[in-house]
């Protein structure tokens, strides 16, 4: 079911019997019809492995299942909402930023910067960026939250995009990512969170960046 954007901070989603949806807890603003919201202790599909993945990632994004018949309004924390319609491709998004998504989408957890191996993980922990993301694939809508709205940057072969990990929201397509330390990062040490680490995305796809260095 496609999500309909009402304004920059609200989306409306139709719910029909037999088609469930997942949303972040507390993200429902209002609804019409008979709709139930069930806490989802396992955090969506994915079973035990996904749970472990989340535990490791220290990700605690409680989800709820939305079922019934009617329309639901979603929004959260006054954050801007961006709707991505997947057409058989893959979206990687930080779990904290997931507002709502179709139940038909396959989900799994992955670690950004895993190409860096153990060092990558260590770096992730050190920087506190917690770049564990949820991977959604299939056909359906995803509503993603961002502080201050998002803009899209295309990633094309030979033209990688570098993103501040804290401003990174999501990416889609055939994209590989790498946490890199910026050239001259020693110079940046003064403020701790300068541009010391960057996420390099290359391949073919799109990256969504928010207008803020504030993580959700």
């Amino acid at each position: 079911m496609p999500f309909h954007k009402i304004n920059g901070k609200m989306v409306e989603a139709p719910v029909q019997p037999g088609q469930r949806m997942f949303s972040q807890r507390g993200a429902m603003l209002g609804y019409r019809g008979e709709v139930s919201f069930t806490p989802n202790l396992t955090g969506g599909q994915g079973g035990v492995m996904s749970m472990i993945g989340r535990r490791v990632a220290n990700e605690d994004t409680p989800l709820m299942t939305v079922e019934g018949r009617g329309t639901v309004l979603f929004g959260h924390g006054g954050h801007h909402v961006h709707v991505v319609d997947l057409v058989g491709d893959t979206l990687c998004v930080e779990a904290d930023r997931l507002l709502a998504f179709d139940g038909t989408l396959q989900q799994s957890t992955l670690f950004m910067g895993s190409q860096g191996g153990v060092m990558g993980i260590v770096r992730g922990q050190v920087t506190g960026q917690g770049l564990f993301t949820t991977r959604l694939s299939g056909h359906g809508s995803v509503a993603v939250m961002a502080h201050g709205g998002v803009f899209e940057l295309p990633i094309t072969p030979g033209q990688p995009v570098h993103v501040d990990p804290q401003a990174y929201v999501a990416h889609r397509g055939e994209v590989t990512n790498r946490l890199s330390s910026a050239l001259g990062w020693r110079d940046m040490i003064g403020r701790g969170s300068g541009e010391a680490f960057q996420l390099e995305l290359s391949g073919q796809g799109t990256v969504y960046v928010q207008a803020s260095e504030e993580k959700l």
């Binding site: 570098h162 993103v163 910026a182 940046m188 300068g194 928010q210």
Partner: peptide
């Protein structure tokens, strides 16, 4: 400082 959110091409900071 720290206000870069993304870039394309080559940049040094």
């Amino acid at each position: 400082n720290g206000s870069m959110v993304a870039y394309t091409g080559q940049m040094t900071f």
